[in-house]
Simulated assay, not measured.
Amino acid sequence: KDPPSPELLSALQELLRMAGAAAGGLPLLDPVGALQLRDPPAVEAAARARSLGAALGGFRCVHGPRFPQLYSQFAARRRLQAQVEQLQYQLSDRSLLLLPEYRQRLGVLQALGYVADGGAVQLPGRVAALLSCHELLLTELLLGNVLSPLRPEEVAALLSCTVHPGRGEPPPKLPPNLQRGMEQIRAVAERVGRLQEEWGLPQSAEDYVGQFGFGLAEVVYEWARGMPFAALAALAPLQEGAVVRCIQRLEELCRELRRAARMLGDPGLAATMEAASGCIKRDIVFAASLYIQ
């Protein structure tokens, strides 16, 4: 506190009195007995400090008239050496624990054309930077015009594979456009997964493809077409709350893809993504409060 409290002043005065009363200084606390230190490095350091302190009186240098000045210079030099060692470590490869994985992922990006050989980020890389999840798959879908021929409700249904928390299988009866779209997405995901596997990333291509489940494709498709939520709950393989969260996340993804399509210079796809966002953003799923509906 500023100014110090009366209690603090009283404690300082008592410490000064105890220090003045001890002719040889206050006795040091035993790290093991008094402080209950059990860490082996700390115990060894305390024993070494006690040994050096006992031997200090026998050193000739401490009795020289220039010892305080020389000690200050030596201490400043040791501090600078420690700073140099720390900076050298930070600049070395040893400080980069994820350097091998970084190089592997950089190789994947360069193979896909997202990053040039010199390190410059290309247009696909800037598009991927606008996305918050599954950047490689979604960017490849945009660059491959997989989503452009589809209607907004079909786009929303297919993109549900990126927000579905499980690996659910799609219902057997889906429109042909959705069936073809699912096959195309799986093909793109397999190509990206194989490339990552070739560059040594730990996730296998099968696991990469398997994380995109189409169990909510029919649910999102019917919701985008105007089905009431009460009827939608009978189709959903998840609880209602999980379905609501997935649809909300899907709407955010559609807005991200709209910005990405604009960066690519595809106004038609941007309009489709905006329409897909509009057709799922409705009713109780996006209500400000369930108690006012």
Rank of each mutant, 00 (worst) to 15 (best):
P3S: 10
E7C: 00
L12W: 11
Q13Y: 03
E14A: 15
A21E: 15
A21S: 15
A22C: 11
G25A: 02
P27W: 04
L29H: 03
Q36K: 14
P41G: 02
P41L: 07
E44W: 01
A45L: 10
A45Y: 06
R48H: 04
R48G: 07
R50A: 15
S51N: 07
G53C: 01
G58F: 08
G58Y: 09
F59C: 14
P65L: 02
R66M: 00
P68S: 03
Q69S: 00
S72D: 08
S72I: 06
R77C: 12
R77A: 15
R77Y: 10
R77G: 12
R78S: 08
L80E: 15
L80P: 05
Q88A: 05
L91V: 03
S95Q: 12
L97A: 13
P100K: 01
Y102C: 06
R103H: 11
L106P: 02
Y114H: 11
Y114T: 05
Y114A: 05
A116L: 13
V127F: 03
A129W: 01
L131C: 08
C133M: 13
E135K: 14
N145F: 00
S148Y: 04
L150R: 00
R151C: 03
A156C: 08
L158V: 00
P165Q: 09
G166K: 10
G168H: 02
L174E: 06
P176L: 13
N177A: 15
E183N: 05
E190L: 13
R191N: 06
V192W: 06
G193L: 05
A205P: 03
E206R: 11
D207P: 03
Q211D: 05
Q211K: 14
F212N: 05
F212I: 04
F214W: 09
G215S: 07
L216E: 08
Y221A: 00
W223C: 08
L235P: 09
L235V: 04
P237M: 03
P237Y: 07
Q239R: 14
C246W: 05
L257M: 14
R259E: 15
A260S: 12
A260Q: 04
A261D: 07
D266L: 04
D266S: 13
T272C: 13
M273G: 04
G278H: 12
I280M: 11
I280K: 08
D283S: 14
V285F: 14
